[in-house]
Design a protein around this nucleic acid. Structure first.
Length: 605
RNA sequence: GCCCUGAUAGCUCAGGGGAUAGAGCGUCCGCCUCCUAAGCGGAAGGUCCCAGGUUCGAAUCCUGGUCAGGGCACCA
C-alpha cells in the first residue's frame, strides 16, 4: 500500500498504482473491464486485444485516451460509441482512486481525466524518494549483459564509436534504473591480421625514428598515434629492434598490391627481429591503444565491468567447443579445404566458414565462441550494440546460437547508424588507417562531454546522425543540453537567493500545502513530473534513451515557462513552501534523468 | 542484383492506425526596476517523397517505385 502521509490530505493509492506508471495502470483497468464484458456475454470475441492508452494532445480530451472501442467495433458488431459506454460502465471501482472522470467522445474514444490529488501527490513522492524516483524493479534483478563500443584497438576512438558509447551506456543505465542487474562489457578484438598490421605500422615508424628512410605503406595505420607508440618503443628498446631499410624492403616488390605488400612486410619483420620480438612490439601497441581507449571512455563517463579479450578464447579451446556442439548437431561439413557451418539451415542466407583453408579460425568462429561464453555465464538477456555496417552479420550469429542449442531470442542486437561529420557544408572523411578522422577526444575537447553525450542520444539509434562540428561548437549555447542544465541551475539559484533573503523552506509545510498549487503553469509541471517513472520504464524497455532526452526538454520547458510567469519566493509562506517543493522536485527529476544519460546537472552556469 | 536504414516546416529531427501533425534552430514581432534573458510569449512556415492497396479511418500498415546512406569475404 502506497500512502502519502500529509496532515492536510491523505492520498490512498491502491497497490497497483505504486509505480506511477499511469498508462500501464489504465491499460490494466480497461483490460479488466473488457474481461468482465466478455464474461457477461456482451463481448463475443475470442481473444482480448492489446489495450493501448495514449497521452492526449488536447487538454479537452483529458489526460489519457483509449481507442479500444473503435478497434473492437467491427469484430464485436457493437457501435464504437455504444461499446465505449459499456466499457466505461464496466471499469473497476478502483479506477476512481486516480481518475476524476471518464468521458466517451466521438467517434468512440474513452477519455480519462486524472484526479487533481494525484498531481499534487507528485512533489511529495519525489522529495521522499529523491534519486530513487523513477527507479523500479520491473527487471526483477535479472542479469543482462550489454556489450558495446568493442572497437578494435588499432586506433583511437572516433566519433562513430562515441555514439555507440553514449547509446550503450544510456541503455545500460536505463535498464539498471528499472531493476536489471546490468553487466557492461567491451569485447577486445586483439587477434588476427589487423593486429599484425598494427605491430608492423609501429615497427616501421620505429625504424624511421632510428633514422631509417622508410617508404611507409599506404594501407598501414598512418595516424600520429602510431608514431607516439614508436617513440615509446624506442625509449624502451633503444635501437635493438632496428634493421636497415634496404634489408626490410628486400623481397617486397613495389609493383605488388598494397595488401600483399603488407603481408610481405609482416613476414619480413618476423624474419628479421623474430616472431617473439615482433609479438612484443604488437603487444606494446595493443596495450597502448587499450589504455588510450579506456582513458578516453572514462573521461566520457563510460566505465565497463569487463574487458573481454578475444585472445583469451584462442588458448581456451573455445572454438573447439563451438565446433563440437555444431558437429554433434551435424551442422558442419568440409569443402574446399575449409570447415563450414550450415548457417543456411538456420535462416541465414548462406553457409559460413568456421576454419579457413590455412587452418585459422575465422572471426565468426571466435565470435560464436564469445557468445557461447556469454551463454555459459548465464545471463537472462544479452544486448549487443553494433555499428550498422555489421547488420548482415546478425543472421549468422543468431543462426550459430540456435545451432549450438541456445535460445537465439535471448540475444538482442541493436544497430547504431553511422555518424557523418560535417564542418559546415563539407563532409569530413573518416578512415582509421589513413588517420584522417575526428576522434572522440577531439569532439569532447571541442564541444564538451555533456553536449556530446546529449547530442548523440538525441537521435534515435537507427537514424543516421549528421554531426556538424561547426554548429555544435559555434552554437553550443543553443544546444538543448544547456537548456535543460540551465533549468537545473536556475532552481539551485532560487535556493541560493532564498538563503540570501534569510527565508527558510519548510518541506513538510510545503507538502501540506501542495493543494495551493493551482496555476495552469503549475498544473503543467506537475503533470509532466508524474509521467517520469512510466517514461523511464518505456525508454528502458524499448532501449530508446532519446525518449528520455525529449522528456527532459519538455520538463525544462515547463519549468522555464513557470519561472517566467511566477515568482517563487513570495511573501505568502505556505504558498512559498509549496512552490519550492514543486521546483525542488523538478530539480530532482532533472538530475535523475540527466544522470541516466551521463550528463551532469550543474548548480550554476 | 539482393538485404538493412531512412525520406515529416527553410535546416536538424521527434511522433506515428484515430480527434486541429509537433519541437529545436533560423526568420519576424513583443517581454528584464523583479528568483540567472543560456529564459518567456506570439507570428509566419507542411501535398508527412510518389503511386496503388488494406481499413470505419493511413503521415503511420502492405506492395511497387524514386532518392540518400550502409551492407552483401576462407577481413575484423
Amino acid at each position: 500500500m502506497y500512502i502519502l502521509a500529509c496532515q492536510g490530505a491523505r492520498y490512498n493509492v491502491p497497490f497497483f498504482f505504486q509505480g506511477f506508471h499511469l498508462k500501464r495502470d489504465l491499460e490494466r483497468l480497461i483490460t479488466e473491464a473488457l474481461a468482465a464484458l466478455q464474461r457477461e456475454g456482451v463481448l463475443s470475441i475470442d481473444t482480448l486485444p492489446t489495450v493501448q492508452i495514449e497521452r492526449t494532445r488536447d487538454a479537452r480530451h483529458g489526460d489519457f485516451a483509449c481507442n479500444v472501442a473503435m478497434v473492437l467495433a467491427t469484430t464485436s458488431r457493437i457501435k464504437p460509441r455504444e461499446l465505449a459506454e459499456r466499457i466505461c460502465a464496466a471499469i473497476p471501482a478502483a479506477t476512481f482512486d486516480i481518475v476524476e472522470k471518464v468521458e466517451v467522445a466521438d467517434p468512440g474514444f474513452i477519455n480519462f481525466f486524472l484526479k487533481f490529488d494525484l498531481f499534487h501527490s507528485a512533489p511529495a513522492e519525489i522529495l521522499k524518494k529523491k534519486e530513487k524516483y523513477g527507479r523500479s524493479n520491473g527487471g526483477q534483478g535479472k542479469r543482462v549483459i550489454v556489450e558495446f563500443v568493442s572497437a578494435n584497438p588499432t586506433g583511437p576512438l572516433h566519433v562513430g564509436h562515441g555514439r555507440g558509447a553514449a547509446y550503450g551506456d544510456a541503455v545500460a543505465n536505463l535498464l539498471e534504473a528499472i531493476g536489471f542487474n546490468v553487466h557492461r562489457e567491451y569485447y577486445i578484438n586483439d587477434t588476427g591480421r589487423q593486429m599484425d598490421i598494427l605491430g608492423l605500422s609501429v615497427w616501421l615508424r620505429y625504424l624511421e625514428r632510428c633514422g631509417e628512410l622508410i617508404e611507409f605503406p599506404i594501407n598501414a595505420y598512418r595516424g600520429d598515434y602510431i608514431k607516439d607508440i614508436a617513440i615509446a618503443l624506442h625509449k624502451k628498446e633503444g635501437t635493438s629492434l632496428c634493421r636497415s631499410a634496404d634489408v626490410v624492403m628486400q623481397g617486397v616488390p613495389p609493383e605488388i598490391d598494397a595488401e600483399a605488400q603488407l603481408d610481405r612486410l609482416i613476414e619480413q619483420a618476423e624474419a628479421l627481429i623474430g616472431k617473439e620480438d615482433f609479438r612484443k612490439v604488437t603487444d606494446l601497441a595493443i596495450q597502448a591503444m587499450l589504455e588510450d581507449i579506456r582513458e578516453d571512455l572514462a573521461q566520457f563517463g563510460v566505465e565497463f565491468d569487463e574487458w573481454f579479450s578475444e585472445r583469451s578464447l584462442v588458448g581456451s579451446q573455445a572454438v573447439e567447443k563451438v565446433i563440437d556442439r555444431l558437429k554433434k548437431g551435424r551442422h558442419t561439413y568440409s569443402e574446399g579445404g575449409a570447415f563450414w557451418f550450415k548457417a543456411s539451415g538456420f535462416r541465414d542466407e548462406k553457409d559460413r566458414v568456421l576454419v579457413r583453408e590455412n587452418g585459422q579460425p575465422t572471426y565468426f568462429a571466435l565470435d560464436a565462441a564469445y557468445h557461447l561464453d556469454k551463454f555459459n555465464r548465464h545471463f537472462d538477456r544479452m544486448i549487443d550494440i553494433w555499428g550498422a555496417d555489421h547488420h548482415g552479420y546478425v543472421p549468422r550469429l543468431k543462426a550459430v546460437i540456435e545451432a549450438m542449442g541456445e535460445d537465439r531470442e535471448k540475444l538482442d542486437v541493436r544497430l547504431v547508424q553511422f555518424v557523418s561529420l560535417y564542418r559546415g557544408q563539407e563532409k569530413v572523411q573518416m578512415s582509421t588507417r589513413s588517420g584522417e578522422f575526428v576522434t572522440l577526444r577531439e569532439l569532447r575537447e571541442e564541444i564538451g562531454r555533456d553536449a556530446a553525450r546529449f547530442f548523440y542520444i538525441l537521435r534515435k539509434s537507427e537514424q543516421h546522425l549528421d554531426f556538424d562540428l561547426q554548429l555544435a561548437k559555434s552554437q553550443s549555447s543553443d544546444n538543448p543540453v544547456y537548456y535543460i542544465q540551465y533549468a537545473h541551475a536556475r532552481i539551485c539559484s532560487v535556493m541560493r537567493q532564498m538563503e540570501q533573503k534569510n527565508l527558510r523552506w519548510d518541506p513538510d509545510e510545503g507538502v501540506r500545502n501542495l493543494s495551493k498549487l493551482t496555476e495552469p503553469h503549475e498544473n503543467a509541471l506537475l503533470a509532466t513530473l508524474i509521467l517520469y517513472p512510466g517514461l523511464v520504464e518505456d525508454a528502458a524497455q524499448s532501449e530508446e534513451p532519446h525518449q528520455l532526452a525529449y522528456y527532459l526538454r519538455e520538463l525544462a520547458n515547463d519549468f522555464h515557462t513557470y519561472y517566467n510567469a511566477h515568482q517563487f519566493l513570495v511573501d505568502d509562506e505556505p504558498l512559498r513552501d509549496a512552490r519550492i517543493c514543486l521546483i525542488q522536485a523538478t530539480g530532482q527529476v532533472l538530475r535523475n534523468g540527466l544522470g541516466l544519460l551521463g550528463v551532469s546537472a550543474p548548480e550554476a552556469m
